[in-house]
Every structure is written in C-alpha cells, then in structure tokens.
Design a binder for these strands. Structure first.
Length: 472
RNA sequence: GGUGGGUUGGCCGAGAGGCGAGGCAACGGACUGCAAAUCCGUCUACACGGGUUCAAAUCCCGUACCCACCUCCA
C-alpha cells in the first residue's frame, strides 16, 4: 500500500514518490505574525502536522520546514497603529502562535525560518532572476525589483490561469511595473514612512523582501532546488504559490513535486479573516474545550473540506473524543501487556490522501469492539484493541497520554489529586449507604458530587468520578 | 470576465456507479436499587430538472443557490 496525495497542481490524487526513497522534504507556508491566531489559522498547522506524522509513521525521514513571515506590509501598518516596534509586534505574535500550536500538539518543525533572517539568500535569488532576464529593477527610482510575468511563459500553470484573463489589479500601485501583474521581489524603503529597522542593504538600495520571494529562497536553502511537498491554505494558491513556483523555476529550480492545499474553517459561510470574532481566537476556544478536543474536531474533517465552525459541532466533537478517552481510561487497568498496531482499514484510510474522517471512524470501531470485550474482563483481544486505539491516536497526534497535553494542562494535576481525595471520601460513604440499601442517602451523595460538576459511574471495579462533559 | 470548490439524514461529517462510514442528539431494549457508562436495535439522507446504465448520492447535460482566489490572506 502506498500513500496517495491530492496534488492541486495537477488536480490528481496520485502515488507519493519521494525524490529520495525513505525521505520527505516538506515546506509549509506558516503565518504572517501580525495578529493573534484564530482556529482557522491553526487548522493548516494541524493538517500538515498529520501529514508529517503519517510520513514518519510509514518510515520516512521527514524534513519539515514551516516558515514564519516576520516582516510585511501588515506588520508595519499594525505596529505603527499600535505604536510599537514592528519587530516587537512580530515577536509577540510569534509567541502567541507557538503557544496555540503547542496547545493542540502540533510538533515543532524541523526548522522554522523567518524572512528577516534570509535577506542574503533573497538578494541572491533576485540577482539570479535579473541575470536570467526574468526580473528587473523598477525604472522609477523606487528601489523596487519586479518579477517579469511576461518573460515566463509558464506563468499561471499552477492555478491554470492565463495572464490575459486575470483581472487587472485595480488597487495595486503600478509604480515602476512593466505589466500590472508583475509582482515585487524586493521593495525599496519608503524613507520617512517606513522605519530604518525594516530596511536591509541590497544592490538596489535599502529595502525589504517582497512577500513571495522569501519562501522560494528558504525552501531552496533548506530543502534544495527540488523537494517533495509544498503545503499551505487554499487562498495561497494564487498569487503566493503561483509566484513562488514561477520565481523558483525561472531561476532554474524544479521546486515542489506535490502541492497540497487545505480548505477553510469558515464562520457564517465566510473565511474567518472577514468576520470579527475574538471568540474564535485559539485561547478563547480553549476555554471551552481542551486542546485534544479542538484537534479532534479538526482531524475529524478531511483537510480539503470546508468546515463550517460552530460551537455546537465543537462540543459534539469533544464528546466523541471523550468516548475514546473513556475507553482507554477504563481499559488501561485491565489490559496488561499490549503493543501498538494499526488496523489495515486505518492504514488504507490514511494512505488515501490522508483520509482522517475514515481513519477516525476506524478508531471508533475499535473502541466499540474494545468496550464489548471489556465487559468480559482481560483478554488478548482486548489488549489488541487497546494497542490499536493508542497507535491510531498517536498518528493523529491525539494520544491522551501524550506529554504535550500534560504540559498544556498546567497546574491541573495537583488539583486533580486534591479533588480525588475529597471525592473518594464521599464515594466511600455512598458505597456504605448502598450496601445498607439506603438508596436515598446514596443518591443524595451522588447528587452532591454532581452539583459540584462531577459525574459518578458505578463500574465493576467500584465507583469512578470524572469531570462532567463540557465543563472542562 | 477568468479559475477552483461546494449543496448528503434532527445536527456535524465521510463516501465517488451495486455492498447502510463514523460521531452527536432522539427513541426502544439489555445491564443497574435507580442512574451513569457500555452494548444491541430504530430513525434508510444525498439542492432541483433531465439523461446514460441492469443499477446513480456517485457519471453526463442543464438550472438554482453558496463559497474561495484573481497580487494583504491559513
């Protein structure tokens, strides 16, 4: 069985054949750190984290590069509005992003390069493009350098568009462009309006990188002229990815073999950046559900499907995940030896363009079977189901035993011990009442615990408490 | 104007010619002192109109509505 991926460049789902057997080089466009991350932003990170984990799980050594755009127009505009240094804003937002991603167990990339640290590589690539006749310094003295779209016949190949059919950029400043579709590789500093700290020396005067060039330069530096997979959100296909590919290929670099694009999480049918919604910032959402549950919500939908975000659906996802967790909690004390193994159906689902919805369905199948077996006490079959569930959750980054969750939980563990001590005392009283068939007393104790926000279940191994669903 | 995606049961959300994904909710049954949890079962859906086919949610044609991108974007 081999992994098949949907390549948006060819619009085909085809076998993944890495350039070097057993290795995979992945470049993912990360965020522009200009504001706090919302759930839409982190979906992309989760989707590509799953890809990375699956490649690792199937024996690939993965080089995973995810950039962070730490200088651009928006960062400059917003920082000016807020009266802070642009680099202070970028650094603060980067910390917020890191916090949000670790809360949902997104593994850190192999390396996370930023545009500001790669100006020499960007200048070098720009010079190559000028030498090759595909870029030119603006003749208006602005210090800008543009990619010459008309000089590259393949321009538009990624998104199947013809230059002549494209809507001319109405609001774009033509400045020194030969064609309105030409895009900036280098932006000359606007002295007086842009801070000196946001300008670097170059053969064309002081300035800063254009948006697209950084990814071409950094992908080339860390993954080489040709690499396996390039990922990002659908909105990046054009212009960002189209331009990245044009630049790179015009400079003689074959670039990515496969292009993967994740779909949106929308609210009210619209992309999140268009709706206001502070409530959708990751820290806000994590007040309602845990990181595991938010991640499950994202993984339960296919990466290429639009997800219409709703708190009701999020709550449903949290319950579904708790069902899986509950099985592990109840089975753990009785399973004995077990080993991790993935059912064929799960492997087949993941190999089919990362079919996480079907993969999650397989987890639920194993959980149901495991629950059935659990009623009969320990057995090899139960241990096997337990190992299956753990293995599958691991691949999806959802293993409840993963240290990542404990780190995100903070001081919760100590509190749990305290609650456990208190509740255990009450439950002992209730057990005594039940043995005396004093049902009124037993139920009163259970109600008291329930009113505090905890559920009580009677199991063959005795009473068990848990935090009521939805109140975590 | 160009390019791409979508519309599935009470809800979320898969599937891509036959064989009921899965979850949540609801209802019935088993279990329970009563519950909870769990298991078993029920609810048989594919925007609309045509067509192809032995067979269509799936393929084709048309229609409606929605969304994204066309140089700020996950």
């Amino acid at each position: 069985m081999t992994l098949r991926l949907h390549d948006t460049a060819t619009r085909e789902t085809r076998d993944f054949v890495p350039l070097v057997e057993g290795r995979a080089g992945i470049y993912v466009c990360g965020l522009t750190v200009q504001s706090e991350p919302h759930v839409g932003h982190v979906r992309s990170a989760v989707n590509f984290d799953v890809l990375r984990r699956w490649l690792s799980a199937t024996g690939h050594e993965v080089d995973f590069i995810r950039n962070v755009t730490d200088i651009d127009d928006k960062i400059l505009t917003k920082s000016a509005e807020q009266g802070v240094h642009w680099y202070a804003l970028a650094a603060a937002m980067k910390r917020e992003l890191d916090k949000a991603l670790s809360a949902i167990n997104v593994l850190p990339p192999t390396y996370e390069p930023g545009a500001t640290g790669h100006v020499p590589e960007i200048v070098e690539l720009t010079e190559q493009l000028i030498a090759a006749g595909h870029a030119y310094a603006a003749e208006d003295g602005s210090g800008d350098v543009y990619f010459d779209v008309r000089s590259w016949p393949a321009y538009g190949e990624l998104t199947r568009q013809k230059v002549d059919d494209m809507e001319p950029a109405g609001d774009a400043d033509p400045r020194g462009k030969r064609d309105p579709r030409d895009f900036a590789l280098w932006k000359g500093q606007k002295v007086g309006t842009e801070p000196d700290t946001a300008a670097w020396p170059s053969p064309w005067g002081r300035g800063r990188p254009g948006w697209h060039i950084e990814c071409s330069a950094m992908a080339g530096k860390y993954l080489g002229p040709a690499f396996d997979i390039h990922g990002g959100g659908v909105d990046l296909r054009f212009p960002h990815h189209e331009n990245e590919q044009a630049q790179s290929r015009a400079a003689g670099r074959p670039f990515a073999s496969y292009w993967l694009h994740n779909a949106w999480i929308t609210t009210a049918g619209e992309k999140m950046s268009k709706s206001l919604g502070n409530s959708l910032l990751v820290p806000e959402v994590l007040k309602r559900v845990r990181g595991q549950e938010l991640r499950y919500y994202m993984v339960a939908a296919h990466y290429r499907s639009h997800v219409e975000f709703s708190f009701d659906a999020l709550d449903d996802a949290a319950k579904a995940f708790q069902r899986i967790e509950d099985f592990l909690d109840r089975a753990a004390p009785v399973v004995g030896d077990w080993f991790a193994s993935m059912p064929d159906a799960f492997v087949a689902a993941m190999d089919d363009d990362l079919g996480t919805p079907a993969a999650v369905a397989v987890i639920h199948d194993s959980v149901r079977e495991g629950n059935r077996l659990l009623a009969a006490g320990p057995s090899d079959a139960l241990s096997q189901k337990f190992g299956e569930v753990i293995a599958m959750l691991d691949v999806l980054g959802l293993n409840p035993a993963d240290d990542a969750w404990a780190a995100a939980g903070g001081a919760g563990d100590k509190l749990t011990e305290v609650v456990d001590a208190l509740v255990t005392g009450l439950l002992a009283e209730r057990t005594a009442a039940r043995e005396a068939k004093d049902w009124a007393r037993a139920d009163a104790i259970r109600d008291q615990i329930k009113n505090a926000g905890l559920d009580v279940e009677d199991t063959p191994a005795g009473p068990r408490w848990s935090i009521e669903a939805g109140t975590v």
